[in-house]
Amino acid sequence: QVALSRTQVCGILREELFQGDAFHQSDTHIFIIMGASGDLAKKKIYPTIWWLFRDGLLPENTFIVGYARSRLTVADIRKQSEPFFKATPEEKLKLEDFFARNSYVAGQYDDAASYQRLNSHMNALHLGSQANRLFYLALPPTVYEAVTKNIHESCMSQIGWNRIIVEKPFGRDLQSSDRLSNHISSLFREDQIYRIDHYLGKEMVQNLMVLRFANRIFGPIWNRDNIACVILTFKEPFGTEGRGGYFDEFGIIRDVMQNHLLQMLCLVAMEKPASTNSDDVRDEKVKVLKCISEVQANNVVLGQYVGNPDGEGEATKGYLDDPTVPRGSTTATFAAVVLYVENERWDGVPFILRCGKALNERKAEVRLQFHDVAGDIFHQQCKRNELVIRVQPNEAVYTKMMTKKPGMFFNPEESELDLTYGNRYKNVKLPDAYERLILDVFCGSQMHFVRSDELREAWRIFTPLLHQIELEKPKPIPYIYGSRGPTEADELMKRVGFQYEGTYKWVNPHKL
C-alpha cells in the first residue's frame, strides 16, 4: 500500500502544474464570482478556492472578487462561507491571508454602469489591468444573457486571457439551449467557454479513460460480442427537503440524466481518441451522441416518491408533501431510460440510465454486464461477469466473477477481482471535483468540460421526450421513500436483457 498525506498529494500536483506551459504561476489572475451571495458560491466555490489557495495550487498573485446585487462586505462573505471551509486552528494565518486577497463589488446584473465599476475595481488591483480574468457564473440561467453581454462589453482583460465558467442547466430543451449557446458564442470563442459538469471532475469518471485505453485486457472485450448491457446509475437517499420548488422546474431527467449520466455513457462508449488533447476527446464523445436516436417512450419509466409510513423524519414525507412543490405536480423524481448506440461496436446493446431521489442508498456507478459463458459445464450455477466502476461513495473498480467454492467439488461461487483505489492508495485525500475543474480552467484544459456541439446532441436525444411529458403530463409511478424505485423499472431492465441475480454482496474494501 502507498500512504500519501494531503501535503504529498498537493506537492505532486504542484510539480505537475508548474512543469506545464499552460499554468502561468507568476502571472496575476483575477477570479470573479458572479452571484457571490448565492448558495453555490457559499457552499462550493469559495470553499474550493480556499482549498486550492491553502494547498498552494493557485497562481501566487490571485485575487478573488465577488459580485452580486446584495450590498455585502468581505466580512459578510466570510461569515456565510467559512463554515464550509473546514479550516483547522493551525490554518488561521493562512485564512487571514486568503481573505486579504478577497474583495466585493455590489451591482445589478443588467446595468452597464455596475460592470464599469467592477472593471475599475479590477484595474485598481495590483497589475489588475493586465491580469488573466476568470469569470464564474454562479447564477440562474435567466440572467446569463445580460451578464455575459455586460462582461464582454465592460470587463474583459485587454492583455491577459479571459475565460468564463457556465453552470448547468444549459437551457431547458434543445431550442433554449441553442439560443443560449448562440448568444454566448457570439461574445466569446469556444476556447474561452467552460460549461461545467462537476461529474466530469470526479476521480473515477476520469479513471474510465485510463482503464479503457491503457489496459490491453479490456480492449478486445469492450464491444457487443461480449457486453450484454451497460447500466449507469445515480441514486440519492434523500428527497427534495424543502427545495422542491427549484427541482420541480427541471425534474430528474434535466437535473441528472441528460448531463451526468449521458457524459458517463460517452466515456464508456467512445472510441479511442487520437490523443488526450481536449478536442480529440470531445470529438469522440460527440460521435457517440450522434449514434444515439431520440428516446422512445416505451423505453422510459418515470416515478415519484411517496412517504414511507414506517419511516422516520423526512422519510415519512412524499414529494408532494414538500411545501415548495406545486400542488398535484407530476414532475418525476425517478427515471429509467434505455438508449442504444447504433454503431458497429455497440449495435443492440442497451445502455440503461437510472437516477432518482429518496432511494435506498447513495450511489453513482457504471456497471457493464457481460454475456453468459458459452457451453456451460457447471449446471447453470454460473452468474454473469460484471465490471463495476463505483464513482461514489467509496470509489472502487471491481470485476464480479466466478471462482471455485472451497471444498471437494467443482462448485462455482461469485467473488470479485478488486482493482480499488483504496487498497493501493491508503487514506489518500484526493482533490474534489470542483478543485480539479477550476484548476483545469486556470490551465486552459477543456477536456472535462462540455463543448457546444456535445451539448446540442445531448438535448436532441431528450427534448422530444421532455416535450411529450410536458404536454401529456403522465402521472409518475409512486414508489416508497427509501425503496429501490418503481418495480416497473426493474421490469424494463429485465425486458431489454439485464439479469439481476441478487445473490452477490459487494464487500467494501475500504472497511476491511
Rank of each mutant, 00 (worst) to 15 (best):
M257V: 12
M264I: 11
C266A: 15
M270S: 04
K272P: 13
P273W: 00
A274G: 09
A274W: 12
S275K: 06
T276Y: 05
N277S: 12
D280I: 08
D280Y: 10
R282W: 03
K285S: 09
V286G: 04
V286S: 07
K287Q: 11
I292Q: 02
Q296M: 06
N299H: 14
N299L: 06
V300F: 10
V301F: 02
L302E: 01
G303S: 01
N308M: 11
D310W: 13
G311P: 08
G313N: 10
E314M: 10
A315N: 10
T316S: 13
K317F: 09
Y319H: 03
L320Q: 11
D321W: 05
T324A: 14
V325S: 07
P326G: 10
P326M: 12
T330F: 07
A332I: 02
A332E: 07
A336F: 05
E342Q: 13
N343D: 04
E344M: 08
R345S: 07
G348F: 01
F351G: 01
G356R: 00
A358Y: 00
L359V: 06
E365I: 02
R367N: 07
R367I: 11
L368C: 05
D372R: 06
D372V: 06
D372N: 06
D372S: 07
V373W: 15
V373I: 12
D376N: 14
I377A: 02
I377R: 03
H379S: 09
H379V: 09
Q381H: 08
C382F: 05
R384D: 02
V388R: 13
R390K: 15
V391N: 13
V391C: 15
Q392P: 05
Q392G: 11
E395A: 07
V397I: 12
V397C: 15
V397Q: 05
Y398E: 13
T399Y: 08
K400M: 15
K400E: 06
K400N: 15
K404N: 15
K404E: 14
K405M: 14
F409E: 12
N411T: 09
P412D: 06
E413G: 15
E414A: 12
S415I: 12
L417R: 14
D418I: 05
L419R: 03
L419E: 04
T420P: 11
T420M: 13
G422A: 05
N423G: 11
R424I: 08
K426L: 14
L430F: 09
D432S: 11
D432E: 12
E435Y: 04
E435V: 10
E435Q: 11
R436N: 10
L437H: 14
L437K: 15
L437E: 08
I438T: 03
V441K: 01
V441A: 10
C443M: 06
C443P: 02
G444I: 01
S445I: 08
M447S: 04
M447I: 09
H448T: 15
F449I: 04
V450P: 11
R451Y: 02
S452M: 06
D453T: 02
D453F: 01
L455T: 04
L455D: 04
L455K: 03
A458E: 14
R460G: 04
P464K: 09
L465S: 04
L465A: 12
I469R: 04
E470N: 10
L471Q: 09
K473D: 13
P474Y: 09
P476K: 01
P476M: 08
P476Q: 02
P478C: 05
Y479V: 01
R484F: 15
P486H: 01
P486A: 02
E491V: 12
R495P: 04
V496W: 11
G497F: 14
G497N: 12
Y500Q: 15
G502I: 10
G502F: 09
Y504Q: 15
K505T: 12
K505P: 15
W506T: 14
P509Y: 12
